[in-house]
Design a protein around this nucleic acid. Structure first.
Length: 552
RNA sequence: GAGCCGAUAGCUCAGCUGGUAGAGCAACUGACUUUUAAUCAGUAGGUCCAGGGUUCGAACCCCUGUCGGCUCACCA
């Protein structure tokens, strides 16, 4: 991944000008960055970082963090007319010890001997090409990010530690051990204070990451001395991957070592921010600009927890809606706790397409406020979306559309000239709508078991449909359906009149059809439904109802 | 206990730099349908949490309070 894969940005003067005062939050953040680097050598890249704890799978928060960071990055590029290079580093803490065995791995017992060892030492429980569990998770992360086309560079903590990229900062940390401790100790409880160490040696004996007190810290030699697992004192150089830093110092040290300019994180890190900053300063760096975003809540306002299974996973979202809709959700109000549950999806989808459609006609100031600009890193595609997603979801259940063709038939009727070929984005939404139908509408269908009268009625209807030409239109079919009901007392309605003056047909007839054939209380206009759905297919529904197959 | 966020129509939320309150859904009415879905047109609905301040003017800015939520206090 290089800069060249970033989309080109419209850098015309009115855009740059508008960016300077734009209220959109990515610009607010980016302006802080501009100030930060204005006196700096402009050839030095501005580094954006996101962190990743590799003990779990990438999730919706991972997406949000990278997407939002990219939005700030794009805003920064526009503000600086793309004259200052930018990088986005996704840093994986894969040298952390495996503190517990994840739930979602095969043969958990096999991992037991590797507890507390760096994740890049733990064998990969999934087997396959990746050497370690850490490598596997890293690969998952990269595949995940690549799916969305993010521009980023991947970094592995293990690689950075072992290759010596952190040696200099580690030596500084040893030299400033006392200052580091002075920062850390007041934040800890008494018990923890007694054993705390910013350095976590990797035991040469067991290979585990040790949380042990330091017996000696030698700034001159760059070594630490501690009691290893067999009780003997061991002295190790802090460099070369022998020792890693404990979480909080690790954060600050990484910032200092890499000259990170910007990093955002969730509210759970918020209170630690000043601490990270202090560490970073002790180690001689200017801490990056940061941005604290809110966490998501489940629909009842409780926090999302994977074990509870509340809330919504990224897979669930992307099963029913395009990525852009999720990106929109991430763009909107990053600082307020938003509820994340299924019902927000259709709204996000429709809003996204509305924003994307309006984009071209907006004045520049509004373009930069338009979420679509941020979602697409400035390159907003031209989109025509004649049918809202919310309508598709209604339509899909109203029309019993089990496949795209049926749904498309209804759509083309509603919006003549609109087809899958002319509107590929809509076609994608149609696909999502069908999944929604399969997963939410279908399972909730409840078919009525036909009684005597209904059995007879269905048989008659079947015969009558069979007599129609295959290409009969909706009106003809509707008449045939009504004719069937006219002969049945239950479905006669004296208040209405048939064309020949006899009693009309009651709505009960159609309700019965929906309940018997579609498993729904309500349904489409029956004649036009059959025309679109197919006479043969409708007769198949009837056959099923007659056989009692629906209720089984 | 500390920090952050929120409180606007029945529900979910918009309200950008202060200028007579908006949308979607729900409700109701009607149109199209010889009857049913979608659709379309329309109607109704709000002391903008409370109190004070700044202002010609506050949902918006400042202060105080009330209520709700989340995060952190061990670990990443």
């Amino acid at each position: 991944m290089t800069d060249s894969s970033l989309p080109p940005l419209d850098l015309s003067p009115e855009f740059v000008e508008a960016a300077r005062t734009s209220k959109a939050w990515p610009f607010e953040e980016a302006r802080k960055l501009v100030k930060r680097v204005e006196k700096r050598d402009p050839s030095q890249p501005v580094l954006f970082e996101t962190g990743y704890g590799p003990s779990g799978l990438p999730h919706i928060g991972t997406f949000g963090e990278v997407a939002r960071t990219t939005m700030v990055r794009t805003a920064f590029r526009l503000l600086t007319e793309d004259k200052i290079p930018t990088r986005l580093l996704c840093f994986s803490d894969d040298m952390d010890g495996m503190r517990k065995i994840p739930e979602n791995v095969p043969d958990r017992a096999a991992l037991e001997p590797y507890l507390q060892m760096p994740l890049t030492v733990v064998p990969n429980p999934f087997g396959g090409e990746h050497k370690s569990f850490g490598d596997h998770n890293n690969a998952m992360l990269r595949r995940f990010l690549d799916t969305f086309g993010f521009d980023y560079e991947f970094a592995s903590a293990t690689e950075y530690y072992k290759s010596g990229k952190f040696d200099e900062i580690l030596l500084t940390a040893v030299a400033k051990y006392k200052e580091l401790m002075a920062v850390m100790l007041p934040t800890l409880g008494e018990e923890r204070q007694a054993t705390y160490s910013p350095f976590l040696p990797i035991s040469p004996i067991s290979g585990r990451v040790l949380y042990v007190p330091m017996k000696d810290v030698n700034g001159k030699d760059g070594t630490i001395t501690f009691e290893d697992e067999d009780g003997s004192d061991v002295t190790l150089p802090v460099t070369g991957g022998n020792v890693k830093l404990q979480w909080k110092p690790d954060f600050g040290a990484r910032w200092a070592a890499l000259d990170v300019d910007f990093e955002m994180f969730g509210k759970d890190h918020g209170p630690n921010m000043p601490l990270y900053d202090k560490i970073s300063k002790v180690l001689g760096a200017k801490p990056p600009e940061h941005f604290v975003y809110e966490l998501f809540l489940a629909d009842d306002g409780s926090k999302i927890s994977k074990s509870k299974g509340n809330g919504l996973s990224i897979d669930e979202w992307l099963t029913y809606a395009p990525t852009e809709s999720l990106a929109l959700y991430m763009f909107q109000k990053p600082k307020t706790a938003k509820k994340l549950y299924f019902e927000v999806i259709p709204k996000a989808v429709d809003e996204y397409f509305t924003f994307a459609q309006k984009y071209a006609d907006m004045p520049v100031e509004q373009k930069l406020q338009n979420p679509a600009w941020h979602i697409h890193s400035g390159a907003v595609p031209a989109i025509d979306m004649p049918v809202p997603f919310a309508m598709l979801l209604n339509l899909v259940s109203a029309s019993n559309a089990e496949n795209k063709d049926v749904l498309w038939a209804f759509i083309t009727r509603y919006a003549p000239g609109v087809t899958a070929d002319t509107h590929p984005h809509l076609d994608a939404l149609v696909g999502y709508a069908i999944r929604y139908f399969d997963d939410f509408v279908k399972p909730n269908k409840s078919f009525k078991t036909p009684d005597e009268v209904e059995l007879d009625a269905l048989k008659t209807l079947d015969v009558s449909l069979a007599a129609l030409p295959a290409d009969a239109d909706g009106a003809v079919i509707q008449d045939a359906v009504l004719d069937v009901a006219r002969q049945i007392e239950r479905y006669q309605d004296p208040k209405k009149k048939s064309p020949d003056g006899g009693p009309g047909v009651s709505v009960a007839w159609f309700s019965a059809l929906y309940q018997l054939l579609l498993g729904q209380e309500k349904g489409p206009r029956f004649g036009s439904f059959v025309a679109l759905y197919g006479i043969a297919e409708t007769r198949a529904l009837i056959a099923k109802a007659l056989a009692g197959a629906h209720t089984a």
